[in-house]
Design a protein around this nucleic acid. Structure first.
Lengths: 164, 164
DNA sequence: TTTATATTGTTCGTATCCAAACAATCTCGA
DNA sequence: TCGAGATTGTTTGGATACGAACAATATAAA
């Protein structure tokens, strides 16, 4: 159960308490479940797959994006990972401390910083990512295989609506 | 665009770079878009509806859960909001500082803490929640109305799979 | 009655997270 | 060539986020 009260109890209570308001329960259900699911997935991965390499969810995502596009510019990594550049600076500091990435100021544009994985970073991702992906499969297994693309599309549409 | 590269570019790059691995792209797409959408929704609400009352997304959720069930026990609020009790302690401190809630130690069980909204808290929610819900409607508008319940159900199934 | 075990909320340490401010760099138009 | 405006990454301050450890309280069994 995702909380102490069932969904039915919650909606009944909300309907009763807020009957003087015109509310859209479907929209409410989508956004609350979106947040709950994302939080549960993140915690699950941090507790299981990621815990032995000492990576947080976001550190892993940053490492993954850099792995795919290296050498990667920090402004692009932040955009791909969906975090601010301020946050990325801190997460890269953590990854550097773990000796997983290296930051280099661009020679072509002094404003830009390029990031690459170290050998240790590459070795880690070669082993960690398949395990990560197996957990991804596990986590989405309650969703019918035919519905997973549709789910991803709906989620992407929500993000695009917000970020234009 | 949700990142500097389109989805197609990313998948092509991943397929090329990781062709030696057996990967499930659908599972990958679901979990990455889940996290991106939740993050985008949260940031959108914090920047818009919630910014003038100085509330974070989580502070709002805690206030809302307490509003619905008050007097509410902290262990239930944490469970409903999907955050740890350690985090709830800090968020309640923030809400108390804003004079929106009051914490009381239970007289029946000395381990428990009960939370209620202040008058200021009630007044805030009467005005803020309808505006919040209107933004929820806006944010889910890219998803066809007939599909919203289905989307909420799939997300709920993922959370329940993880949290048992 | 006593002791062991469980539950609760808080504290601590550490990481993430963002907006705002800032310094450095780049670009473009006059 | 120079100055205005834009872009980049970092720093700062404050909030969230969690696991582990801890103290206080409750419960159950001997």
């Amino acid at each position: 159960m995702t909380g102490s009260h069932t969904l039915g109890e919650t909606e009944a209570r909300v309907a009763n308490r807020l009957s003087h308001m015109a509310l859209d329960f479907e929209a409410m259900a989508v956004s609350s479940n979106l947040f709950r699911a994302a939080s549960a997935v993140r915690n699950h991965f941090e507790r299981n797959v990621l815990s032995e390499s000492g990576l947080s969810w976001t550190a892993f995502v940053v490492l993954w994006v850099t792995w795919i596009w290296e050498p990667a510019e920090t402004r692009d990594i932040a955009a791909e990972a969906g975090i601010s550049k301020a946050t990325l600076t801190g997460v890269l500091s953590t990854l550097e401390k773990l000796d997983l990435v290296v930051r280099t100021r661009s020679t072509e544009d002094g404003r830009l910083v390029l990031v690459t994985l170290t050998k240790k970073g590459h070795d880690l991702m070669e082993n960690l990512f398949p395990a990560f992906n197996r957990q991804e499969v596990e986590v989405v297994s309650p969703v019918a295989p035919g519905k997973r693309s549709e789910l991803a599309d709906m989620l992407r549409a929500i993000t695009e609506k917000i970020e234009g």
